[in-house]
């Protein structure tokens, strides 16, 4: 029998995401995908899924969901005030649940969390990915954020006939050190160095497409240029002098000046930025960026191995 997940209340912005859409950028199709793909991967590892299974991305306040059959779930990212039929559900570990209602409340210490369910969210892949493209209106569940009343199938998983909530005593916490400056490779733009010397705060108009920064506006010496490719991490400088760091839903081309790009190792951390939060940037060279990206991949792989070693005992 196919298990399904019913949305009783949607939360602030809950979307189906996987590791994103690759190969269609030349046709204007964004990458999309979990804003912290490593966190989504680890949530999947905790429930025994492949790294690219579809998960739910929660924003600031989570949804209330009904499971019509037992499932193993895991929450990674910001701490979620989660309850299952009244009982507290711990984060950062595999949790076996019988059929019932999973209430995901406010997120603390960050803006986003990822919920993996064994078998994955089994929506149809579109252009090779189950990620929701919010601006394009396709992929994920009906190309949009979840709403109350939605129901989606879950993929097949090992039967776990549990009558009560069960969770191990161990957990993982792969969260990032939020006090560190965000490192970026500066471009040749005259304002690229000044960007690091100023403090910024995260604007409330930020979304999955871009993190908008507020602060002392930078000088914008010339008008917009000819549109050229941009990517998640690109730091744009629009005419108002307040930079935008593009995130996973970034458009594929843009005409604003570029101050450089946030390095791959620090990009996942930006998923946790809350409006009003201060943010500092520090320049970084290409060799260091590459070394840090390799180190970040190795860290995620190590945590994955630790999870696999512990899972059979759960």
């Amino acid at each position: 029998m196919t298990r399904s997940l019913h949305v009783l209340s949607a939360g602030l912005l809950t979307t189906v995401q996987d590791r994103g859409r690759v190969g269609w950028r030349h046709l204007g199709v964004a990458h999309a995908g979990a804003l912290d793909a490593d966190a989504a991967t680890l949530a999947n590892r905790l429930v025994g899924n492949a790294a690219d299974a579809a998960v739910l991305e929660l924003t600031l306040r989570g949804p209330t969901l009904r499971l019509d059959a037992p499932a193993r779930i895991a929450l990674i990212g910001a701490a979620v005030a989660a309850r299952f039929d009244g009982q507290v559900v711990p984060c950062g570990r595999p949790v076996d649940l019988p059929a019932g209602t999973l209430e995901l409340g406010a997120l603390r210490g960050g803006a986003r969390a990822w919920l993996a369910i064994d078998g994955g969210i089994d929506v149809a892949p579109v252009l090779g990915s189950r990620s929701t493209d919010l601006r394009g209106g396709f992929g994920g569940f009906d190309g949009r954020a979840l709403r109350a009343g939605d129901a989606m199938p879950l993929g097949a998983a090992a039967t776990r006939d549990t009558a009560v909530l069960r969770a191990p005593a161990w957990w993982i916490d792969p969260s990032h050190d939020t006090h560190m400056p965000t490192r970026y490779q500066p471009s040749a733009h005259p304002a690229a160095a000044a960007f690091a010397r100023r403090g910024w705060t995260v604007s409330a108009s930020s979304n999955r497409q871009g993190l908008r920064l507020q602060g002392d506006a930078l000088a914008v010496p010339s008008a917009d240029g000819v549109s050229e490719p941009v990517a998640p991490g690109t730091i744009q400088l629009p005419a108002d002098g307040c930079p935008i760091v593009l995130l996973a839903d970034a458009q594929t081309v843009g005409g604003y000046a570029k101050l450089g790009h946030v390095i791959a190792a620090d990009l996942p951390r930006l998923a946790q930025c809350i409006p009003g939060q201060p943010l500092h940037f520090a320049p970084c060279d290409a060799a260091t960026a590459h070394r840090l990206a390799c180190a970040a991949r190795a860290r995620i792989a190590r945590i994955g191995v630790m999870i696999d070693a512990r899972l059979p005992a759960v």
């Binding site: 030349h26 046709l27 204007g28 199709v29 964004a30 493209d133 394009g136 549109s227 458009q251």
Partner: peptide, 8 residues
């Protein structure tokens, strides 16, 4: 080029 929106 194609950009601004998918397929534009």
């Amino acid at each position: 080029m194609i950009g601004f929106a998918p397929g534009f």
